[in-house]
């Protein structure tokens, strides 16, 4: 570390190397948790969104119920139900499920994944149903079957329309992950709360953590802008 940072840390009560390490561990936990839940959530959401557009209500109905439930209730409540509720099921401690639900990480991951998958499903479904009719007709005229049409025409076209809404969902998910600290996970917010309760310095502890979230958000915004530029290249005006 450069000398001036060491010197500054020496004169500082709160931001010692030890507390900065706590923040760092929290950052790793937050990124780990959010990244995994987003990846799994997206992987679940794409097939669900496709099935959600199917006309048969026996297939699209249950998915509608799922997205309705998870978008209609707060994430905090979902996390409470999964974390504390599961532990109350009689005999759960004797089954192999307990290995998974004992630690707070997996219940939180499950709650976050189910929640983000519900939102992402609706985002992608919206993009799929708004595919211009002409594109589909053209694909049909070429003799493409449903699967090929979905793969070559509808999904790539829908991805372009969904990416902006999805970038919002990713940022919301990052911010929503702050509630992981209520189930004893020491994420960024958890680290800030521990440090705050040790030094009784709300401004220092929370402003620092807010800055950490902001930096993460900027990185996400930047990455999504790159992705949008790439996907929506064809919409850019032709430069003279």
């Amino acid at each position: 570390m450069p000398d001036f940072i060491v010197e500054w840390l020496d004169r500082n009560d709160i931001f010692t190397a030890m507390t900065l390490m706590e923040y760092w561990d929290g950052l790793v936990t937050t990124v780990h948790l959010v990244f995994l839940s987003l990846i799994i959530g997206l992987a679940v959401a794409v097939p669900l969104a496709i099935l959600r557009t199917v006309k048969n209500p026996l297939i699209s109905g249950p998915i509608w119920v799922y997205t309705y439930l998870f978008r209609g209730t707060p994430l905090l409540i979902q996390l409470y139900i999964i974390y504390y509720g599961v532990a109350q099921i009689p005999g759960i401690q004797e089954t192999f499920w307990w290995e998974i639900f004992r630690e707070p990480l997996y219940p939180a991951l499950l709650a976050f994944t189910l929640n983000t998958a519900a939102y992402t499903t609706e985002i992608i479904r919206g993009a799929i149903v708004s595919t211009p009719h002409g594109e589909i007709e053209a694909a049909k005229a070429y003799g493409m079957n449903w699967l090929l049409r979905m793969r070559r025409i509808i999904l790539p076209s829908a991805a372009r329309r969904a990416v902006q809404a999805y970038s919002n969902e990713v940022i919301f998910m990052l911010h929503a992950s702050a509630i992981a600290s209520v189930v004893t996970i020491v994420d960024l917010t958890g680290a800030a709360r521990n440090i705050y309760s040790r030094f009784y310095a709300p401004f220092d502890a929370f402003i620092f953590v807010a800055l950490c979230y902001m930096v993460l958000t900027f990185i996400l915004v930047f990455a999504f802008r790159k992705l949008e530029n790439h996907l929506l290249r064809h919409q850019r005006p032709v430069s003279s």
Binding site: Y84, A87, Q88, Q93, W98, R102, P104, V182, T184, R193
Partner: peptide, 14 residues
């Protein structure tokens, strides 16, 4: 944060 949550996790064998 609260003793209630803590006791709930003690009961749940966490």
């Amino acid at each position: 944060t609260t003793a209630d949550d803590m006791v709930l996790d003690l009961e749940g064998q966490r």
